[in-house]
Design a protein around this nucleic acid. Structure first.
Lengths: 349, 349
DNA sequence: CCTCGTTTCGCAAACGTTTGCGTCTTGGAA
DNA sequence: TTCCAAGACGCAAACGTTTGCGAAACGAGG
């Protein structure tokens, strides 16, 4: 039994199926166990043998079967990525950065997109990903305590990008400080009637990011002793249309603000559209500042708070790789800097 | 041996590791083989048993181990997606549509991003994906004959989205017809001096899409007996900056054109920026039309040829699912319609 | 030259599933 | 009642790795 399959199938394997570890072993004149040890860098193999085995494996363009490896107690060599959506600038950019790092370390990327609430609970209770990935990266969505607990039971490394799962490593920016900076920029320009365009997630709630940016805004306003009337706090669904509508609402206030801080550039751009259509002079009658430094911000001359999205992805990749290779990460909380970018839509009052 | 592991590990599995097929079998009072047959809908199981097994499996929130399944000759339950990049509007949108369909059929998505030429050859010669996915979807990049051959040797289904691998199913639009439509739109408005902004891939070459759109343009011009001087054909790298620079080049021509067809909206938008900065009145002195109906096109009032990106992704998903379930697809060539969207940047001359 | 310790390597069990084949059950026809 | 066919189910091998354990090889010290 142990040898028969080698002749039955793999004798004809050069043209047919891919090479197995047994093929490599035979070609190198050693046992499969030695090949396995050589390939995964385990001790117990002389460097001469190791080198020769690696060479042979390369010649046969051999790659280990992830399925077999995983089944035998090894790794799958893949990490799962959880995103609420994959189209959309932020998530796709972060995933790109993440993929870059993963690829450098020979890790594949399995994409899990979770939209609806029931889709999420199904994902976390069933936990089919256990069979497919070695670690999980959560990108730009906040996990509920229930979800975090279910994840913990799965027993694999988890890291957050632009989100901070409790007790887990993460790569993020300081949303609160960034928002405060944007707000101070407006107050420094002399604005006193400043509104905020808050944005909600697909589920209609305010995510952690929204909370932090709101907190930063309120803090900076309080610093200057400025009031934030209820009418100046408008919520709208994330995106262009939401921003457009929210801005329209603000314009219909008894005393419109002179400046607006939008929690995201996409919302800010929607607001700009409304302002243009209403013939409100942006940068004169109304200042606007966003958050993210979306690709369009520059094109539309939108002032904003830049955050390094691609780099957050890469850093998240660093964290998983480290967790996977060393079991734990040295510096698990990576807070990347934001940067105020002043353009034409924000000006003095 | 057959039973010992059940006591050793799985006795404690409720809190610990996930349920195995043996657990389900025991709970249902049948053999694992019966569970397997029931779960994958194979004949040889009475409907009563099948139903009960499914119920028990659900109660234990059991999910088959993809690794073990694959190893034993089954499927991995995942499909690989090849993209040249994942950030960027087109690819992320197509992937979103694809993921939607895959998820409906319980298939996971493994993302392979290939940028450099050597990265591509490595991917195709090594073919590690064979161990991880049941099928491959190529999105928005043309495969070389070599790559196609290597793929064929791997022996798994391949489908294209916005690309047409020879002999494989695909979902695409008619780029040539779309481009011809856009061009005719300009000639119908009375334009005679029409330039084209061609775009190159990351590798500096013209992809198949670029070729088709160029051919459509030339065809429509020829129909009207219009000449396309060499100076009116400008190539630039895909994206905003490329378009901006290409437009600047056109403006410095001896006799600038009165209209421009850009092979993509991103390039067109770059061109618009240059025009605005040069105080050229868009829609009066210079008409511009793009291709794709990028999210920004509407915002910037850009005329364009809309293509259903998300739907191409979904259709691609339909194709893989069909190939996987029935071995072959009935209608392998799905050409989706484009639609001319006339906005403010194109006007009579 | 013999013994002991270290390093290098091979043997074989185990991982969780799929599937061909054999056995048993069941129901109907003779 | 007996026999047969068909359907339902169990047995066990196989998939390609990983890894604990034991055997062999090797060098050095006594």
């Amino acid at each position: 039994m142990r040898n028969c399959y080698r002749e039955g199938v793999n004798e004809h394997s050069p043209p047919g199926g891919p090479a197995t570890m047994a093929d490599v072993a035979e070609a190198a004149g050693v046992a499969v166990s030695t090949v396995s040890r050589a390939l995964r860098g385990r001790p117990g193999v002389s460097s001469a043998q190791r080198e020769q085995i690696l060479r042979v494996a390369d010649e046969l363009s051999y790659s280990v079967s992830a399925s077999a490896s995983r089944l035998a107690g090894g790794r799958t060599g893949a990490v799962g990525v959880l995103v609420p959506r994959i189209d959309g600038w932020f998530h796709s950019t972060a995933v790109a950065g993440l993929q870059e790092r993963l690829h450098e370390h020979g890790l594949d990327l399995v994409l899990y997109r979770l939209q609806g609430r029931e889709e999420r609970t199904g994902f976390f209770t069933r936990r089919a990903f256990r069979h497919r990935v070695d670690a999980l990266v959560v990108v730009g969505t906040t996990l509920t305590p229930d979800e975090e607990e279910l994840l913990a039971e799965a027993g694999l490394p988890v890291v957050g990008i632009s989100t901070r799962p409790s007790g887990r490593p993460f790569a993020d920016v300081d949303d609160r400080a960034g928002a405060a900076g944007a707000t101070r920029h407006l107050t420094n320009l002399g604005h006193e009637r400043i509104a905020i365009l808050r944005s909600t997630t697909l589920l209609g709630t305010h995510g952690a990011v929204s909370h932090d940016r709101y907190a930063g805004f309120c803090g900076a306003m309080a610093e200057r002793g400025l009031d934030v009337p209820e009418a100046y706090v408008v919520s709208a669904p994330w995106g262009l249309e939401g921003g457009a509508q929210a801005m329209a609402e603000l314009l219909s206030a008894a005393t419109p603000p002179t400046a607006v801080f939008a929690e995201s550039d996409e919302v800010a751009i929607g607001a700009l559209r409304t302002l243009r259509r209403s013939n409100v002079e942006v940068g004169r009658t109304m200042s606007v500042i966003g958050f993210d430094d979306h690709q369009l911000a520059e094109l539309l001359d939108l002032s904003t708070v830049a955050q390094p999205v691609h780099e957050q992805g890469r850093t998240g990749g660093d964290l998983v790789v480290e967790a996977l290779e060393h079991g734990r990460v040295a510096e698990p909380e990576r807070v990347l800097p934001t940067r105020l970018v002043v353009r034409g839509t924000s000006a003095g009052h």
